[in-house]
Design a protein around this nucleic acid. Structure first.
Lengths: 193, 193
DNA sequence: ATCATAACATACTTATCGGTATAATATACT
DNA sequence: AGTATATTATACCGATAAGTATGTTATGAT
C-alpha cells in the first residue's frame, strides 16, 4: 500500500547531523534544517519527530560513527603509541584546517544540553565511557605486547587520555598558537611509556 | 542634570552573567534577562547595548573574577602541588554539588560562540593564555623553592594543565562516576613532580 | 519654579520561531 | 480501475524573539 518516501532517511539524517554539529541545537532553526536536508517541514516531523528527537537521532548517528573512527585510528597501527599520536594530532590538524571549527558533536552537546537535559547527560556520558573503554583496550594491548611498560593502571590512564582529548578539542575552538597545543600533546603522550 | 539611574549597573551585570553562564547565549532570552536583572528592556539597551554586547560585558566580568579566583587558589598555599590539587578538586566538587552544572562560563562560550564569532574566539583564547601564565608562575615558584623537580618545561607543563582542566570541567557536565574523575585527577597531578 | 535631559514603564513592531492543518499526489493492494 | 493510505508541498498557526517608539517621571542647572 501507499506512496513511498522520496528521500533517503539516512542521507537526510546525515545532513541534519552536519548542521547540528556546526551550529548546535538552539542556533539551528527548522528552516536551516529543511534547506540543508532538502525536504519539507512535515517530512521531518513524520520521519524523525520534533526538533529535539531529530537532534538525538543525529547525535546517535555521530557517536557510532565517531566511535568506529577512533577505534580504527587506534587499531590500524602496530604501535599503540603511534595510534594515540595519530588520534591526537588528527584532532589538532582538523581544528586548524577547517574554517569553522566544529570540534566534536558529542562534546558540544555535553556543554550545551547535558546540564539541562538528563537524556543528553546520559547519552554523552556513555559515549565518553565507551571511548575510555576503547582507549583502555589499546593500552592493555600495548602492555601485553611489551610496547608499554607503565606502572599506571590502564583504566585510569585511559580515563586521563579521554579528559585530555576533550580538553584539546575544546581549546582548539579558540585557535591557540600551535606551540601551545603541540607542547600539550607531547606531554600528554609521555603518559604512555 | 537629569534623572539618575535607579539600578546598580554592576549588580545588574552580575545577574546577566549568572543567567548567561547558566543557559548560554542563544538559550537566554531578553525576557529571561529583564526578569533576572530586575530592570526593563530599554534600560538594558541604554546601559549595555544589545544582547551580544551585554553578553560580552558579562563574559569579561566573569574572566576577571575567574582569573583572580584561580590565582588566589594557587597562591594561598605554601605548597604548589597542594594549590593545584585544591584547584582541580574544587572543580570536581562544584560539578557534583550544583544541581545545574554550569561549568566555566568561558569554556561554555568557547564551545558555543568562538567558532562563529572572532571576537569571542580571541576573548576566550586570551583567557586561557592568561590562566596558562598563572599556572606557569606557580610551577616556576615550585621549581625555585625546590618543591618541584620536574625536568619538563614549565610553560609546556602549565599548558598541559590548562588542557586537562578544560577537559575535566567539560566532562563534569555529563556527571561521570566519581572514580573516573578521581583517577584522572590523580594522574594529571603526577605530572607535577 | 522652570526647563532640559535622561531614565523609566508600557506597549508596540517586525520577523522568526517550532509545529501543524489541509489538500494534492503517488503508490500498493484488492 | 478503484480505493485506502502515506507522502508531499503550501500555507498557515499562535507564541515568542530581539529591539524600539512613546509618553511619563524624576532630577540637576539656571
Amino acid at each position: 500500500m501507499v506512496r513511498q518516501r522520496e528521500f533517503d532517511v539516512d542521507i537526510a539524517l546525515d545532513a541534519a547531523m552536519q548542521i547540528y554539529w556546526e551550529k548546535g541545537f538552539e542556533a539551528t532553526s527548522l528552516s536551516d534544517l529543511t534547506s540543508r536536508m532538502g525536504i519539507q517541514r512535515p517530512s521531518i516531523y513524520s520521519a524523525f519527530g520534533d526538533k529535539k528527537e531529530l537532534f538525538e537521532a543525529a547525535l546517535r548517528k555521530y557517536t557510532t560513527y565517531h566511535s568506529s573512527n577512533v577505534r580504527a585510528k587506534l587499531q590500524n597501527r602496530s604501535s599503540v603509541k603511534e595510534g594515540f599520536r595519530t588520534l591526537f594530532e588528527g584532532i589538532v590538524e582538523e581544528g586548524y584546517s577547517e574554517s569553522c571549527n566544529r570540534g566534536c558533536f558529542c562534546i558540544n552537546t555535553m556543554v550545551e544540553l547535558a546540564p539541562h537535559d538528563e537524556k543528553f547527560e546520559i547519552l554523552t556520558r556513555e559515549h565518553q565511557m565507551y571511548l575510555s573503554a576503547i582507549f583502555q583496550e589499546a593500552i592493555e594491548r600495548g602492555l601485553r605486547s611489551g610496547e608499554l611498560e607503565t606502572d599506571m593502571n590502564a583504566k585510569a590512564l585511559a580515563q586521563t587520555l579521554v579528559v585530555s582529548l576533550i580538553g584539546l578539542t575544546v581549546l582548539m575552538k579558540s585557535r591557540p598558537e600551535r606551540s601551545f597545543i603541540n607542547n600539550s600533546v607531547e606531554i600528554i603522550l609521555t603518559l604512555l611509556k
